[in-house]
Design a protein around this nucleic acid. Structure first.
Lengths: 158, 158
DNA sequence: CAGAACATGTATTTAGCATATTGCTTTTCA
DNA sequence: TGAAAAGCAATATGCTAAATACATGTTCTG
């Protein structure tokens, strides 16, 4: 049982933005801080924008910023948005009739109860819970200009 | 978020055996009743045997039978055994240090709490809960000798 | 208008799951 | 005692979806 790295990245981007406060962060900056693929992150950011979690500013000097306060972003809700498929077994799909015992099978009910418990546990936390305490996380993400970056920080030369 | 069909099959095999009572069932019989791959089911049955859920009788006239009473087989326990990996995100692995913020990341704790809630929900049910009521399930699995089989029932001719 | 930054679609790679194939071992019954 | 029935076990392969890369468009700033 795994979540997609897509969901993983989504949560991490939100954490980054929450730590950044009101400042804009670029995708390149986030990718560098975590040492992950910038290309993949662009899609994640795009979807987070569509879902209303972040607001994006295009063009030069643009970037991302949280569209809602961290304490208003509920984790279960994020996961429901980003995870492509919360169907634990094939017969969760409404059109599935492949299993012989489908009409009388109690397993579906038990599994969906478990899934609900999973999401309910996430619903008890918000993004604000994930960025407390702030200081050590900010240090690891090298917000301080003189701090050592996580990956190799490429010198941008004119 | 999905479970493997391996886990799905495991639960379904256990349900079949619970409905069958003390009688032996062959793998071929189970596969036919559900209309699924016999080859794949063999691995499932083997693992269920290793885990102590079923006892197998080899040789002519052999087959499978539950090794424990249905009300003693807790679903969460089965899932923990059959699911290859309950690590929701890569950093659940003990040797993973790929994520920059690993040391101070609160996400791991939140996610493992949710996973525990998922399993706890399953722990509140046993195999006995899944086979109640018995009659309609037995009918769908065509236990009656004159019933219509799930797949095509191949006539075994001498 | 030039360049920086996000937007968006497509293509390729990859990894893990699902399935098939094959041969072995154990047991029972004729 | 040997053949057949049934599970045991390893290996191979095909398939799907996720992950990633790539390419190009669009929008804003200075």
């Amino acid at each position: 049982m795994r979540l997609t790295v897509y969901t993983d990245f989504s949560l991490r981007v939100l954490m980054f933005l929450a730590l950044k406060g009101d400042e804009l962060a670029t995708i390149a900056e986030v990718a560098k801080a975590y040492g992950i693929s910038k290309n993949h992150l662009m899609k994640v950011a795009y979807q987070l924008g569509l879902a209303g979690y972040v607001e994006t500013v295009r063009g030069k000097g643009g970037g991302l910023r949280l569209a809602r306060r961290p304490q208003d972003i509920v984790l279960g809700e994020v996961v429901r948005h980003t995870e492509p498929d919360m169907a634990l077994v094939p017969c969760f799909a409404p059109d599935d009739a492949s299993c012989t015992i489908f009409p009388s099978c109690a397993l579906r009910g038990v599994l969906s109860g478990a899934r609900d418990a999973f999401l309910a546990a996430l619903d008890r936390h918000t993004l604000a819970d994930l960025v407390r305490p702030r200081a050590p996380l900010q240090k690891l993400l090298s917000f301080k200009p003189d701090g050592k970056a996580a990956g190799q920080r490429l010198a941008r030369r004119a």
